[in-house]
Design a protein around this nucleic acid. Sequence first.
DNA 1: TTTGTTTATCGCCAATAGGCGATTGATTTT
DNA 2: AAAATCAATCGCCTATTGGCGATAAACAAA
Lengths: 117, 117
Amino acid sequence: MSHFNPKTNRKFAIRAMKRSLETIEYKENTEALAKFAKALGHPTRIAILKHLESQSCCFTGDLVDVFPLAQSTVSQHLKELKNAGLIQGELKPPKIKYCINQDNWKIAKSLFQDFFD
Amino acid sequence: MSHFNPKTNRKFAIRAMKRSLETIEYKENTEALAKFAKALGHPTRIAILKHLESQSCCFTGDLVDVFPLAQSTVSQHLKELKNAGLIQGELKPPKIKYCINQDNWKIAKSLFQDFFD
DNA sequence: TTTGTTTATCGCCAATAGGCGATTGATTTT
DNA sequence: AAAATCAATCGCCTATTGGCGATAAACAAA
């Protein structure tokens, strides 16, 4: 089936257009995995997590010293890792000690494992 | 150490400001892992890869039928997966058959494995 | 109470991502 | 040669990301 576009003087295919306004239904693990992956999708955040793994825990300020980034930028990355559930902050006033969230870390680990067979 | 801001009538801390215009040096694997993770950071792309795993291979059109997304949108996701090296396209004119790129898949798998201990 | 220390948040900006319809280009089929 | 099929790309739009400096908020220390 085709139609004619007088403006361009060309044929064009009729296509059934779609709109994803009907929010897509994914299998449950799909979105969880994508969320973890997205949080890991920046080299600075990978590096932060590696640092937390080796140090077990650390303060925001420690990371600011490690990376050539503004304090606000580091804080923003920490926020994203926290929102994804990969880390957690413990108040040690006036500092905050960040650690890997072991429960979610295990979940993420197994989601990636399953995904890659 | 602190200074005084006459505009706001407040003290403020002096902070050594940083600029990351000096492009950051990460360990090699860090950026590779982040790149893979970024490509996996969208549920549609996860779903596409799961589909490719189960079917071994498929055409763009098949995916357009599976997802309630426009053909151009699906094509865009495929492009990103291809750029990340996770899939590859084989010409079967006039179609294109997409498959998992097994070599890079193995690399990604081991990077994630190592990362999660 | 004031000062200093530490971290989060705000406002701004530029760049990227994600979605779409329309179009193009390649290739088969008729 | 003409028509149909298929996938990539273009242009457009909006939303999100990533960076920064400045400010605010919380608390310890003096």
